[in-house]
Amino acid sequence: MTHQRRTSWILHAVLIVASLIVAFPILFALLKSTQIRSVVLSPSLIPGPAFLENVRNVFLNANLLIFMRNSFIVAIAVTVGKTLLSLMAGMALVYFRFPFKRFVFGMILLTLMIPVEVLIVPLFDVISLQPPGTWEEWWAWLQRPDRILFQPAEYGFGWANTYFAMIVPFLASATGTFLFRQHFMAIPRSLADASRIDGATPWQFLQRVLIPMSWNTIGALAVIEFVYVWNQYLWPKVIIRREELQVVQVGLNLIIGTGEGVEWGYVMAGAVLSLVPPLIVFMLLQEQFMRGFALSESK
């Protein structure tokens, strides 16, 4: 008994220390964001009275409000779009029979191997080059597949410095399609047959059966996508060069800026605030996330 008590005591000690290490840098940032300017640069960890002032300053004077708004627009658009598109693709792959299905699924899955980051150089051209000026130019370009395939891109979307550049390329998801496909295949076939016999259209089946049965998968996917998009750094940094359109991850670095006189109190307040939205999404959907995951794991 004493032996067991000692192990459990050690267990608690290890877990408490680990929890502290995991939390420490964030707590540090939180405490620093409450301190007045003269204390911020000292090692003091005593909470100060300046939290609201730092927040107001970083929000208004350092543009954090604008960065956060941009991140919200992009993250919500991508999360909703990705979930919708992969739900549709998953449904097509499971509930319909059509030629080249295996090939189509393979083509979608293959993109798992190609992270967007590795394509930034060509993607930058595709997004930022200007589209053809006239329909004639368009037509001439489309008629030359060798030019399209074997020569550097001549035309693009002209989307540099727009939300489109940060949203549209990310709307399809191999992960999401794969998840929904796995989930749908685990739903008994009899359900779909029953709906069809009852005269339900595929649309009604989706609405009344599939979506209500998929909340765990949708929740799990939403968490992953939202966090992924919210945390993106490299692509927005490259494609967005106007400060008023920049997202929060790159914006933080703009607040640090260059040279002397960094307002670290503001920066820490910004860092803490930027953690709040994904944390809320995670906490709200944590149950679905773990369940959606545990279920697909046990298959």
Binding site: M88, M91, A92, Y95, F96, L171, M185, R196, P202
Partner: peptide, 18 residues
Amino acid sequence: DNAAFTSRVLPWLLLLPS
């Protein structure tokens, strides 16, 4: 698959955006 529905066009329409 659990292909319960038959349609020539619909699966391609569903896959088209992705």
